[in-house]
């Protein structure tokens, strides 16, 4: 039985809308957490917070979004090498971001804003929740990378790659909000 629902183009839009609803739902977590930031601490920010490091990791995540976009365009073109190269750069940048947050920023923040203080609670909870999304995004991108290497995805059908990339951009959008609200807003 062939119907509209089985048409691959129609199905693609269905899946895209589904992913968007998922993103809408997921962003509510961050809306709740960021509102909590204002409810608990107003726009207070400790003096010791390393704003330059914050700018650095923001830049890394931004570049990774850029390369993720290039990867998506490349596979739509049918250029597998370009797709894999851009995807690999994205994954490496994502890993660097994650390592810097967990291994450099968090130990630093433990000194002036431990989780037992209000700002520390927010800082660790929000960056932690974001880092968790970075981690899941990375796992997805790594899976896509190996799938792509095995010859999956074509210019006509690369929903798997597209969804992973859109999710990665979502992680970036979240950071676009988290970065100013945690690092830049101040009295």
């Amino acid at each position: 039985m062939s119907t509209l629902a089985h048409d691959s183009k129609y199905q693609l839009v269905t899946r895209r809308l589904g992913l968007w609803l998922f993103i809408l739902s997921e962003s509510m977590i961050f809306i709740a957490l960021l509102f909590t930031r204002f409810l608990m601490q107003g726009v207070y920010r400790p003096e010791e917070l390393n704003q330059t490091l914050g700018l650095g990791i923001t830049t890394i995540l931004l570049i990774s979004s850029f390369t993720a976009n290039r990867a998506e365009v490349r596979i739509a073109q049918g250029d597998r090498t370009g797709f894999l190269r851009n995807l690999a750069i994205t994954i490496i940048l994502g890993l660097v971001f994650l390592v810097v947050v967990v291994a450099v920023e968090w130990p630093e923040a433990l000194h002036f804003a431990p989780p037992s203080t209000g700002y520390g609670t927010l800082f660790f909870a929000i960056t932690g929740m974001h880092a968790f999304h970075v981690l899941t995004g990375l796992i997805i991108l790594i899976i896509i990378f190996f799938q792509g290497k095995r010859g999956q995805y074509s210019p006509e059908d690369h929903w798997g790659a597209e969804s992973g990339v859109v999710y990665w951009h979502f992680v970036d959008v979240v950071w676009i909000f988290v970065y100013p609200i945690l690092y830049l807003f101040g009295p």
């Binding site: 509510m28 977590i29 409810l39 989780p115 520390g120 609670t121 909870a125």
Partner: peptide, 27 residues
């Protein structure tokens, strides 16, 4: 997602030592 976040905050307060619901920290 809001109740998920709220419960998650309680879990964090319990297992990770955060201070969402400590009255003297603004929460």
């Amino acid at each position: 997602q809001f109740v998920f976040t709220g419960l998650f905050m309680v879990v964090l307060d319990r297992v990770a030592g955060t201070a969402f619901f400590a009255p003297d920290q603004g929460g």
